[in-house]
Write a protein that binds this DNA or RNA. Structure first.
Lengths: 301, 301
DNA sequence: TACTATCATGAGTTTCATTCACGATGCACA
DNA sequence: TGTGCATCGTGAATGAAACTCATGATAGTA
């Protein structure tokens, strides 16, 4: 059996117009074509779909059953087509974001809030890339944008700068290190380092300081939530390294001391990674613009 | 834009098999055909449905959206096809019954009860033909069987005898006529005749007795329910004429007297009317057989 | 680097929906 | 009861579109 969309439209048209000739007119084909066609459907279905006893012909019980199927199916296709039209003119699309920067949730959420108002037809989602490789996910089209501070110079991926930030050392005022003016690798000896639960070579502190100096802290404790990290640090259960803007938002506690990393502070840059040539998509470009604006606000505190 | 069922099946197959060659195998066409086809879909939709960056190719976001449509649509068609197969082998169908015989509800219901157990896929309904012409409804395929006692000898309609019955006169024991041994037309003069609410020339009493004799009762009162008619008659608010088997079921009241219509009783035959050549349908034949069996039980009381 | 698996492409073939022209048939109205 | 009109069915011809075959291109892999 070989039902086609065309057949469903035919059934619908015949029912609505109440006749073959008028239906043919509606569908912009000849009456003859329709006659051939419905004969074909009936042969395929092996069922009489029309009552020919009288003129004009009408749908039989089986025909009405098929009409019900048509009424269920055709709107689905119409919706799909409308959605595809949206994709074509760039009004719709998908923006699934992977975060390599764990602390970025906080500044990203207001950006997405703004974004959704302007691009209601874009399907938005965020995933923290704790358990998967964000870059290959981007390449595989599992996600559409990655927030990352490692521009790995890939041929098929484009990195757009979002903002600069400084990873700063944070400890309790009770901690001995709070007396220093800047922190170097060997200061971590004997300290408990609190980090986000990601692979250590994706953390600024290991890449920039501890790795090169081959220094290992006394212990590493992994905590997911920024606020919890700061709480633990405030009660001197460990030290941490966070982007400056995270502290600027959260530094209410007088127990916390922030210090630059030697020598004299470090500057890092955050990027939005997209597949090559996709940055021109209007909604992607707009998202990046919004993200940079939000970043400016962050820098101001 | 011109999406076809074939395209939906293709999308589904590619997703399930995870590749063009395997999908082609599943669909029993060549890999080349599929390649051409998906190119065609993408041209039509104006949207990239597949990720060709990697091999084997996979569905893009838009492709997944189309897959969702396929998952919604294909089962509907499968169900339709299954239903049509049922119609083909006579397992399924429609049995909408119109009753010209108003009193027939009572013996019909147990018949339908039996019938539904054997033919679960047949769509059953009963309509009393108070407000429409049952025979033309049958011809128009609005109904599939008419219970009638008027075999009007139509070329495209077939009448199958169900059972014989006798229209009998019923009155209260208080009524003068209860003293008679049989009833003739002139006995109705001065009486209130209670009938079902149908056109008078479809009632046995007018066709057989009052019409030919050109006798008019004092008044006619139309009542829908058989039990109510008998109640009114029992309290001598009028007289009526009903099939014998209706009385046989309901004649508990000692106030009711049943008398034959002159001369010496009248015999009528009830028929099942179907469209020509449709009686061979298994479920229709079976229904008629059940109806006749039930009628035999009725005759026995 | 070679090899395999996978997809793309172009030409040729086949299939099939459509049109055209005409015939058949129901329906309304005289 | 016919007569005209509207409606539907049919068969041959046509043309577009889908498919196959043969081959080329490319990504993943040993």
């Amino acid at each position: 059996m070989h039902i086609e969309i065309r057949h469903l439209r035919t059934i619908k048209a015949i029912h609505e117009t109440g006749g073959l000739a008028r239906a043919a007119d509606l569908l912009n084909i000849t009456q003859s074509a329709l006659s051939h066609q419905i004969k074909g459907i009936e042969d395929q279905a092996g069922v009489e779909l029309f009552v020919r006893r009288s003129k004009p012909l009408r749908l039989s019980a089986a025909g009405l059953r098929m009409l019900a199927a048509a009424d269920a199916i055709l709107p689905i296709l119409t919706d799909l087509e409308i959605e595809f039209e949206g994709l074509q003119d760039g009004r719709a699309g998908r923006l699934h974001i992977a975060l390599e920067c764990h602390a970025c949730f906080e500044w990203l959420l207001p950006v997405l809030e703004q974004f959704r108002k302007v691009w209601p037809d874009v399907d938005v989602d965020i995933r923290s890339s704790l358990s998967f490789d964000a870059m290959s996910a981007l390449r595989r089209e599992d996600v559409d944008l990655v927030v990352s501070s490692d521009p790995e110079a890939q041929h098929d991926i484009e990195f757009t700068p979002l903002f600069d930030y400084e990873p700063v050392f944070v400890c309790s005022a009770q901690n001995i290190l709070s007396a220093k003016t800047q922190i170097e690798a060997r200061d971590f000896l004997g300290q408990v380092l609190i980090t986000y639960p990601v692979d250590r070579n994706r953390l600024d502190i290991f890449k920039l300081v501890l790795g090169p100096a081959r220094v290992e802290p006394a212990a590493i404790r992994q905590v997911e939530l920024t606020d919890v990290i700061l709480m633990l640090v405030a009660s001197n259960r460990g030290v941490t390294v966070l982007p400056d803007w995270v502290l600027r938002q959260a530094r209410r506690s007088p127990d916390l001391v922030a210090l630059p990393l030697a020598p004299g502070g470090v500057t890092r840059r955050m990027f939005a990674a997209t597949r090559e040539n996709e940055k021109v998509r209007p909604y992607l470009a707009h998202f990046i613009r919004l993200a940079r604006q939000e970043a400016v606000k962050l820098q101001r505190g």
